[in-house]
């Protein structure tokens, strides 16, 4: 199970590695714990040096109650899940074949330039195209719909997926593909039966990245939706009211927003970092 390298490490090297991992774990968990603490604080305790519930301050459930009772939360969770899953799937559906094509074939234009073009889609600050997108959705009669957000997020994450996966495919060993080709297999067959399964971990990773992007997208979510299609980022933006930012409720919303994807990725991560220890390629 352990990689041969791990087995080769000395005790101290392993201890060192472990310490590093443990430290980063602590560092990663810290903000979540802090969000939990914040979510249990009454407003008067928020900006005073009180860190441990019960010991330093009296925890209250008001913030949680207020959020969990809000019917918008369930709606937002559902919409966020839909937008995330649909746009990630659609983006991958389009990106994966294109990435494979860019990794294996040449085109009239140098592949590098095509990749650059995809990458350049990620440069424009989104605020510049916000209002035109709004107008576009108005004309398509898609204002305040989940579909509008799916379309927008697919458009934004597709280039990212193409660029990342193209390099992954290129890196992937071609031995089996070539062998299959010599055996007379067609391109699509090779793509579906060989290249894809080999790249499965990367595909999952790319899907998660696209999903995360759509899950967290706030600017277009707040502009294109106002009622039926509100997503979780919308709720977080709404932590700011005429009375300023409600940090305690924002903390609750942050935790609620992070829970489903983390659970999702927990199940998905079984497929990551397995390497090829089960060895698809054996000489």
């Amino acid at each position: 199970m352990r990689s041969p390298i791990w087995r080769s490490l000395s005790f101290w090297s392993r201890a060192f590695a472990y310490a590093f991992l443990a430290l980063w774990t602590l560092w990663t968990l810290l903000p979540f714990l802090w969000a939990l603490v914040n979510s249990l604080k009454a407003p008067v305790d928020t900006f005073s040096p009180k860190f441990i519930p019960v010991l330093d301050f009296k925890p209250v459930l008001d913030n949680w109650n207020a959020v969990l009772r809000d019917p918008n939360v369930v709606k937002a969770l559902r919409n966020s899940a839909l937008v995330g899953a649909l746009s990630a799937s659609l983006a991958l559906g389009l990106a994966v074949p294109a990435a494979y094509a860019l990794a294996r074939h040449s085109f009239p234009l140098p592949n590098q330039q095509i990749l650059l073009w995809f990458l350049s889609q990620r440069i424009m600050p989104p605020a510049v195209v916000l209002v035109p997108f709004f107008v576009l959705m108005v004309n398509l009669r898609l204002i305040d719909t989940v579909l509008a957000l799916v379309l927008v997020n697919t458009t934004f994450t597709l280039p990212l997926a193409v660029v990342i996966l193209s390099d992954v495919f290129r890196e992937q060993s071609r031995d089996i593909e070539e062998a299959a080709q010599l055996d007379g297999a067609g391109e699509v067959t090779i793509f579906l039966k060989i290249a894809l399964p080999l790249a499965r971990d990367s595909l999952i990773a790319a899907w998660l990245i696209c999903f995360a992007f759509a899950w967290n997208e706030a600017l277009f979510a707040a502009t294109l939706a106002s009622d039926r299609a509100v997503t979780l980022p919308f709720l977080i933006l709404a932590s700011r009211s005429t009375r300023g930012v409600d940090f305690n409720t924002a903390a609750v919303n942050t935790l609620i927003a992070i829970l489903p994807p983390v659970v999702l990725s927990f199940f998905a991560q079984r497929y990551l970092a397995r390497g090829l220890s089960f060895g698809a390629v054996k000489g």
């Binding site: 998660l208 977080i236 942050t254 927003a257 994807p261 990725s265």
Partner: peptide, 10 residues
């Protein structure tokens, strides 16, 4: 992986 799913404004 968890921070990947945290919203930047949050």
């Amino acid at each position: 992986l968890a921070p990947l799913f945290a919203m930047d404004v949050a």
